[in-house]
Nucleic acid binder design. Structure first.
Lengths: 106, 106
DNA sequence: AGGAAGTTTTGATGTACGTCAAACCATAGG
DNA sequence: CCTATGGTTTGACGTACATCAAAACTTCCT
């Protein structure tokens, strides 16, 4: 029923990719939105109203391909969530520190 | 005798600036070099041989203005080091996680 | 004072990337 | 089936930025 879009395996997540993915204003705001680790509806309404839908789609792709997020596809509805456990296993303490830092500015 | 180049006060260090500063291949390598927290000679010999001296100077400026590094000027010799304590006070655990992640890739 | 050494600054150039618009694709619903 | 919906993909455009070269600046040395 539910499919998952392609994403890198935990072991293949590269730290520089992760950093480059995070280092963008729009994507930082997306991450803040996803901070709770739960699945979130994917559209501009659910995620970020200010961005064009194709722009948001682009950012989601960057985050997913870097290994930061997982995208679930149910019917024609997409959901995104952070890969907290995977990231914490791979780069201990990193994601928490990032989310804490982001929470301060956004 | 020794002067220090202008840098942001601890409280003024912004997390997004820090992330943007880190998210560059050359600057990541500089950070790895500086990981020990000690002052390092500033020139391309001491820091990164592959980069043009003006390019390296540019990157050091970015890092310093983001609050990541401190630059000391003694005579005509420059030295750089990480602002470990400041960063750790401001964003606990972040720098350690970053350096750990970087150590793996570089 | 004059010249050399060590780095920064300025200016120019190329490229990577964020953004938007339009076309496309799959699925749900009538 | 046929259409509408939710999101992606492709393509074009503008801008931010990494890089290099040359000039400028400050300090040391003779």
């Amino acid at each position: 029923m539910a499919r998952y879009l392609e994403e890198p395996d935990v072991a293949d997540i590269r730290f520089d990719d992760v950093l480059n993915a995070i280092a963008d204003d729009a994507r930082m705001r997306v991450l803040v939105t996803l901070a709770d680790g739960e699945f979130h509806p994917c559209g501009p309404e659910g995620l970020l109203a200010a961005l064009h839908k194709s722009t948001l789609s682009h950012h989601k792709k960057v985050l997913r391909e870097a290994g930061l997020t997982r995208t679930k596809l149910e019917g024609r509805n997409y959901f995104v969530r952070l890969r907290r456990e995977d990231l914490d296993a791979r780069f201990p303490g990193f994601l928490d520190a990032v989310l804490a830092g982001l929470a301060e500015v956004y």
